[in-house]
Write a protein that binds this DNA or RNA. Structure first.
Length: 161
DNA sequence: GCCAACGTTGGC
DNA sequence: GCCAACGTTGGC
């Protein structure tokens, strides 16, 4: 089963905020990048593993593990003129932005960028690429296994389904 | 289809 | 707050 890394600003939705949500699940609203949207729309399936990454904060890095809880459906914020994610070119008849639901699995220790970069096993991770800004990136099975098993010691999750 | 201008992301 | 890197827009 595919695995993903998803960035969230902890001031917006942190791993703790996710854990506190009803059903410990949130719609992944606000994505306004076509590549990231296409991953959600075309590739993400219920049960996929997610590395929950904190960005735009003092200590960017992996902060927890989550899972995809619902396949893609329209992002309501695109229709709301009061939302900062409002898109005047979208309409309920012709939605432009969709998102999946993401559900809490567990908190982890914070695995920061310098630590991620220090491991040759992770050298090809998209999130570590120079200038990368994509908020959703695929994670290779061996990368998942290394991070979850080696770095986090979550051996029960290292072979994700 | 090109490409300059602009806006955004995100680490530092 | 700075700035490199990238994506999007829109004139041509």
């Amino acid at each position: 089963m595919p695995c993903w890394l998803m960035k969230s600003e902890p001031d917006d939705v942190s791993i703790d905020a996710l854990a506190a949500c009803p059903g410990q699940s949130v719609p992944w609203y606000g994505v306004r990048n076509y590549q990231a949207r296409n991953f959600m729309r075309d590739a993400m399936r219920v049960g996929d593993g997610v590395l929950f990454y904190h960005s735009g904060c003092a200590e960017p890095g992996i902060a927890g593990i989550a899972r995809v809880a619902a396949t893609a459906y329209p992002d309501a914020t695109q229709f709301d003129p009061a939302s900062k994610y409002f898109d005047p070119k979208a309409s309920p008849d012709n939605p432009r932005w969709v998102h999946v639901d993401v559900q809490f699995v567990r908190r982890t220790r914070l695995v920061g960028l310098p630590e991620l970069r220090s491991h040759p096993e992770l050298a090809n991770m998209r999130v570590l690429a120079r200038g990368n800004r994509l908020s959703i990136t695929p994670v290779a099975a061996d990368e998942w296994r290394f991070i979850v098993g080696q770095l986090l010691g979550a051996t029960d999750l290292q072979d994700w389904k």
